[in-house]
Design a protein around this nucleic acid. Structure first.
Lengths: 239, 239
DNA sequence: AGTCAATGGACTGGAAACAGACCAATAGAG
DNA sequence: CTCTATTGGTCTGTTTCCAGTCCATTGACT
C-alpha cells in the first residue's frame, strides 16, 4: 500500500545548496520588510551561527546580494552590512510565464496562505497581547498606511508577518514568511493600483482592530475578506 | 529598526546535515504511517532523486535505519528496501524531560498544529472530492478505527495526513507532517488509554463526515473539538 | 593623538556530499 | 535452464562546505 501521499514526505530534503538557501533567506528578510533600507544586518559571525551556515558560505551569499545591489558592507568597528536605500526593482516577469512556471503551485500556495493567515489572525486575537505587542502591531499598520507605492508590497508583508509574530508561534511566522515569498513573486507581476491600496488599508485596520479587541471570530472573518480580494485580483490577472 | 521578528527569518537554513535530514525524513514516512510494515520504499536511485540527495547519503541513512531495526533491504530484481513488520518501540522518555527540552516549543507546536489542522479540515470540506479521494478518506478512517493499540498513533497520524492530502495542497500536507512529528515525540511519552481511543474514533468519524458532506464550518468545528482533547491530555501530563 | 574593540576580509586543511561508473545478486520471463 | 532487467552494493575523483585562524580597517573613547 504505497499511496500517493508520499509526495509530501519524500519531497526534497533541501531546495538547493546552502549557498543558494542562504541567499534566498537574506532576500526574504529584505523583501518581506524584516530589515528595511538603512538597517544593519547582524554581524557575519552571529548571522552565520543563527543560519547554521559557515561564515564562508554566508559571505558568498552576501557578496552575491552586494553585486545584485541589495546591500553594502563597511569594515571596521560600527561597520557591518547595510540594506541599500535604493533597492533593485523587481523585474516584471510576464504574468503568463510565471503562471505557467508555478503551474498547480498557485492553488497550493493560495490554499496554504489562506489557512495560515486566517489561522494566525484568529490565534493572535485569542491571546491577550502585551502592550509592546499591541504597539508593534499599531506601528506596522501605520507604516503600511503611510507607505509610498514602491514600498507598499514590502510593508504590507511586514504587517502580515507582525500578525503572525503576535501569535507567539515562531514556526507559524516562518511558515507564513515562506508562503508569502512564493506569492510575492506572482504579485510583483501585477500592477498595483492606488484604489486597491486604499481598500487594503481599510481592511488592515479592521483586522488589527479585531485582534486588539480580542475578537477571534471577527479577526478570522475580516482577514478572510482581505485575502479574498488579493486572490481574486491574482486569479483575474493570471487567466 | 531591527525588530525581534528576524528570529523567524534568520532561523537555521537547515536543521542538520543532509544525512541527518534524510534519516529524519524516512522516519517520518514510517512513523506517520505513510509506509506501513511490509511496504517497499522506492528504489534508491529514485528516492535519492526525489529527496534531492546523493545516493551515497541516502544509503547511509537507510543503513542507519536498518541498524535501528526499522527496515531491511533485499538485492536483486523485485528486491528493495522494506519496512519491518515489527517496528522498534518508541522509548518512553520521561515526560518532564521532554517538556523541558521542548520548552516554549510546546506552545509553538500546538499553535501551529491547531491552525494547520483546523484549516485543513475546512479547506478539505470546501472542495468537492473525487470518488477516489472520498474512498481514500473512508479507508484511512476505517483502518484507524480497527487499529490495535500499538499501531494507533501511526494510523491516527495517517488519517490526519489524509485530510491534508485531500485539500490538494502538498505544502499544507508537508507542513502538517512536520508539526505532527514534533508532537508525536511528546505524545509517545503519554500512555494511551482504550477509552481515549474510542472517543477519538467518534470524533474522527464526525470530522470525515463533515468533509464528505462539504460542510466547512462543521469540519472546522469538529476538528477543533478533537484537537482540544489531545491538547488537554498533553498539557495535563506535562505539568 | 593614541588605543582598542568590533567588524569585514582572506587563507588553509579537513570533512562531507556528490556524480557517475561499475559490480553482484535475484527472480521472473521465455 | 538460460537470459535479462532491476535492484542493492561498492569504488573513485571532484566539489562544496566547514571550522578555525589570522589580517585589515574603522571610528568612538580616552
Amino acid at each position: 500500500m504505497v499511496v500517493q501521499a508520499d509526495d509530501a514526505v519524500f519531497r526534497p530534503v533541501r531546495a538547493g545548496n546552502p549557498f543558494e538557501e542562504t541567499v534566498e533567506r537574506l532576500l526574504q528578510a529584505i523583501k518581506l520588510g524584516v530589515v528595511v533600507p538603512g538597517d544593519r544586518l547582524p554581524p557575519e559571525r552571529e548571522l552565520a551561527t543563527r543560519l547554521n551556515v559557515s561564515r564562508v558560505t554566508l559571505r558568498e551569499a552576501i557578496h552575491a546580494l552586494t553585486e545584485a545591489g541589495y546591500v553594502e558592507s563597511r569594515r571596521g568597528r560600527y561597520g557591518g552590512t547595510f540594506v541599500n536605500e535604493n533597492l533593485p526593482k523587481p523585474r516584471r516577469t510576464p504574468a503568463k510565464r510565471l503562471a505557467r512556471d508555478l503551474a498547480g503551485g498557485l492553488d497550493d500556495a493560495l490554499t496554504l496562505r489562506f489557512v495560515l493567515e486566517t489561522g494566525a489572525a484568529e490565534a493572535a486575537a485569542s491571546r491577550t497581547l502585551t502592550p509592546a505587542e499591541r504597539d508593534h502591531l499599531e506601528r506596522c499598520l501605520a507604516e503600511t498606511s503611510a507607505a509610498r507605492l514602491a514600498d507598499y508590497r514590502r510593508l504590507d508583508s511586514r504587517l502580515h508577518l507582525a500578525i503572525a509574530e503576535v501569535t507567539g508561534s515562531p514556526s507559524l511566522t516562518s511558515a507564513m514568511a515562506d508562503v508569502r515569498m512564493r506569492l510575492n513573486e506572482l504579485l510583483d507581476a501585477i500592477p498595483l493600483l492606488e484604489r486597491n491600496i486604499q481598500h487594503s488599508n481599510e481592511q488592515h485596520r479592521a483586522v488589527v482592530d479585531a485582534i486588539l479587541a480580542d475578537d477571534p471570530d471577527a479577526a478570522r472573518r475580516t482577514m478572510q475578506e482581505h485575502l479574498a480580494g488579493t486572490e481574486a485580483l491574482l486569479r483575474a490577472f493570471l487567466e
